[in-house]
Nucleic acid binder design. Structure first.
Lengths: 150, 150
DNA sequence: TTGCTCCTCACGTCACGTGAGGTGGC
DNA sequence: TTGCTCCTCACGTCACGTGAGGTGGC
C-alpha cells in the first residue's frame, strides 16, 4: 500500500483555513515565522496541517495578547529547539543536562504567557463589570424618562 | 471664596497619568478623539481630569478589544450626544422621543461591547487551558528525563 | 484556450516613534 | 540666563492591504 497523500494546501486554502490573508502568510515567511512545508514543481507554496496549526498559534498570540512578531518568533524558535531535542531523545549519547535546560526555557516561557493571559483576563473582567454598571444606569435613565404606556 | 483651581495638566503630565506618549495625545486630537479642555496663553494644551478619564477609556477599548480609532470615536461621539441631551434634561420642552432614541443607541453599543468582551474572555480562557496542559506536559517530560538524584 | 490562483515587486495605510529646529514658562 | 517642556513639521516603522503585471495548473 502507498502512504497516504500528505494533503498539502495551496496558499489560498491555508489562508482561508486560518482566517488570514495570503499576504499575511507571505509576510510571516519573510519575517522567518512560518516557512511552508513544501513547494510545487512550479514554485507555489504548499502548507501542511502542522503549518496551519503553527499559524493558528501565531494568530492566538498576536490577537489575544498583542504580542509583536519578533517575540512570537523567539517563542516558536525555542519550541522548535525543544521539539528537535525530543526527536533525538531516543538516540544514545544525548545530554540530559541540555534537555533539562531546554525544558527550563520552555517552562519559563509558558509561565510568562500564563501570567500575561491572567492579567488580560482580569482587565477584561473589570471592563465587563464597568459595562454592566453602565447598562444598569441606562435602565435607570429609561425608567426616569417616565413610564411609556405600553 | 474663590472657586477651586481647575487643576489642568500639561501634555506631558497627562500622558504620564494615562501611560501613553505625548505623540499619542496629539495624534488623538488630530483624529478628533480627544480635544484638550483648554490652552495656556502661550498655546500649550491643558488637560482636565475628565480628559484623562476619556483617554483611559480610549486605551481600554484599543488595548483590550483591539478597536480601531474610527470605531472608538463613533462610540464616544454617541456618548457625548447622550450626555448633551441629559444636560438639557431639566429644561422644559425637550423631546422624550429623542432622548429615548439616544438611550437605545447607547444601550445597543453597550450590549455590543459586552458581547465583544465576553468573546475575548472565552478565547483567553481557552488559551489558558491550552497553556496549562502544556505546563503539565513539561512536568511529565521532566519526570521522564529520569529522577535527578537527591 | 479560458479562468482562477499563484508569483514578485512596490506603493499605501494605520497608529504611532523619533528626531529636527524653534519657542515658552519656573 | 539656564534647563526643561512644549510646539510643529516630517520622515521612519510595524504589520499588513492593495493593486500592477506576469506566470502556472485543472
Amino acid at each position: 500500500m502507498t502512504t497516504t497523500e500528505p494533503e498539502l494546501l495551496r496558499i489560498g486554502q491555508a489562508a482561508e483555513a486560518a482566517g488570514v490573508s495570503t499576504r499575511t502568510l507571505r509576510y510571516y515567511e519573510q519575517r522567518g515565522l512560518l516557512r511552508p512545508s513544501g513547494h510545487s514543481p512550479g514554485g507555489e507554496r504548499r502548507y501542511s496541517a502542522a503549518d496551519i496549526e503553527r499559524l493558528r498559534t501565531i494568530r492566538q498570540l498576536v490577537d489575544q495578547l498583542g504580542t509583536d512578531l519578533d517575540t512570537v518568533r523567539a517563542l516558536l524558535d525555542a519550541e522548535d529547539r525543544l521539539a528537535g531535542i525530543r526527536a533525538e531523545y531516543r538516540k544514545p549519547g544525548q545530554s540530559p543536562a541540555r534537555q533539562e535546560q531546554l525544558l527550563d526555557e520552555a517552562e519559563s516561557m509558558n509561565a510568562a504567557l500564563r501570567a500575561q493571559v491572567a492579567t488580560r483576563i482580569a482587565a477584561l473582567a473589570a471592563l465587563q463589570t464597568y459595562l454592566e454598571e453602565r447598562a444598569a444606569r441606562y435602565v435607570a435613565a429609561r425608567d426616569e424618562l417616565g413610564p411609556r404606556s405600553e
